[in-house]
Amino acid sequence: MNRAFLDRFSRILALVLIVVLLAATKPNFLGVRNLLNILNQASLNVIVAVGMTFTMLIAGIDLSVGSILALTSVMAARFFQTGGVSDMIAGFAVALGLGTFLGVLNGAAIVHLRVPAFLVTFGMMQAARGFAYLFNSGVIYNNFDGKFLFLGKGDVLGVPTPVAIAALVLGLFGLILAKTTMGRRVYMVGANYSSARYSGISIGRTTIFAYALSGLLAALAGLVYISRLNAAEAIIGEHFNLMAIAAAAIGGVSFNGGSGSVFGTVLGALILTIIMNGMNLHGIPTQYQNLATGAAIILAVLLDRRAMRAEV
């Protein structure tokens, strides 16, 4: 049995155990309604965490996703109030374009200024949040057009739109990572930077690609998020950074880069959401939920360490 298999298996097992436990204690847990609710709750985190996975695979991290999400969505929000098609397109272009651009900026700073990813994206986190406040100065955009609300509140053949979008993102980016040369380069840069360099892989381009994706997906999650809230303001999305990192960490994406997958990350996001959902069903207060999340992260990292040691 190889390590990747054990890794993934341990996470599926954990997920199954939690599901069985909750199904046994709360009969309504396994209801279609509750399950869709869980997927819907997890969907935004999945979108952001898939981008986070790319940055973590190249041994980096993106702390700015929450702020990018806020800035891009307040900049684009006004376009979604009219319902005009050209406005709608403009709104998407502004949000996704700006998100990608900020990601490129992150990547370029890491590559060309040789500043650690943690610091660069920490700076971006503050700067983008600051811009978001400057730009919307206390205004809350709401009363979005019905067509835009479909993004966060609608459903496709009974599946909530955010879940469908998350599934698309997962499929597309899972494919990029597993089946394309670009995805391979991401793994190679994270697993051994120097060998990748000698093999002609551009560290710079790969890094910028990973952060651009992270920015793009943060912006996409932002659009779905403000549609679901039917409101956009500068304060939103502060917890997204840590939730996305937690999902990836629980999902087995190594902080040292080079190992992990978006499917692991999705398992991580589901485990997180189900733990919280289960505690809600049991009426356990929020403070304990945070405690449980923290415990899950630490447990997952410990598991990884043991797997690593078993290998050596």
Partner: peptide
């Protein structure tokens, strides 16, 4: 080990 190979990756890759 440092520059020639990616040790944590399979032979094929």
């Amino acid at each position: 080990k440092e520059d020639g190979l990616t040790l944590s990756m399979p032979i094929v890759q």
